[in-house]
Amino acid sequence: MSNTASPQAEHFNQLQAIVLAMPMARTLGLSFKHMAPGKTELEIPVQDAFTFRPGQLQATAIFAIADFAAVSAAGTLLPAGWVNATIDANIKIVAPASGALLRARGRVINASKLLTVCAADVYSVNSSGEETLCATLLGTARNIDTAPRTQ
């Protein structure tokens, strides 16, 4: 077996490093559980600091994990040297976000050169591992070429 990582694995590792370097991701305790082209799965623990009543998360934390999951899924399809950023998102909270952790599954709806439409479903996960859908997000990511422009 070779010691060199595939270009896809390197890309996914770079994407995770970029996301996990963000202060909000670190504050939330965000972790990546799965990545595939056009898909991600992320988790955050339910922390008292982000609740508005005991054990129930505020919308801010729900939106954050949904956004990270959706836009990270979009990032899995970017070519080398490109990054992305959220330019629009709409979330619908459909149930309380409570339990041991939140799990968000991001996916790409439509990818193009400059814009990617992406989505995420967020689940409350109890201590037994049972999931309950608590929110869904539809977003748009702007794809940005970071290579220096030559004139």
Rank of each mutant, 00 (worst) to 15 (best):
S2P: 15
T4K: 12
A5L: 14
S6P: 10
Q8V: 15
Q8R: 15
A9C: 06
A9Y: 06
H11E: 05
H11R: 14
N13Q: 14
N13V: 08
N13F: 10
L15I: 13
L15K: 02
V19N: 04
L20G: 07
R26D: 13
P37D: 13
K39Y: 14
T40F: 00
T40P: 01
T40M: 00
E41M: 03
D48K: 12
A49C: 11
R53D: 08
P54D: 03
A64T: 10
D67V: 07
S72K: 00
A73M: 09
G75F: 03
G75V: 03
G75C: 06
A80P: 07
N84V: 09
A85I: 05
A85N: 07
T86F: 00
T86A: 09
T86G: 11
A89F: 14
A89V: 14
N90D: 05
I91V: 15
S98K: 14
S98L: 13
L101R: 15
R107N: 09
N110H: 14
A111F: 02
L114P: 00
L114R: 09
L114C: 04
L115Y: 02
V117A: 07
A120S: 09
V125R: 00
V125N: 01
V125E: 01
E131F: 04
E131Y: 11
L133G: 03
A135E: 00
T136M: 08
T136I: 11
A141D: 01
R142K: 14
R142W: 05
R149A: 10
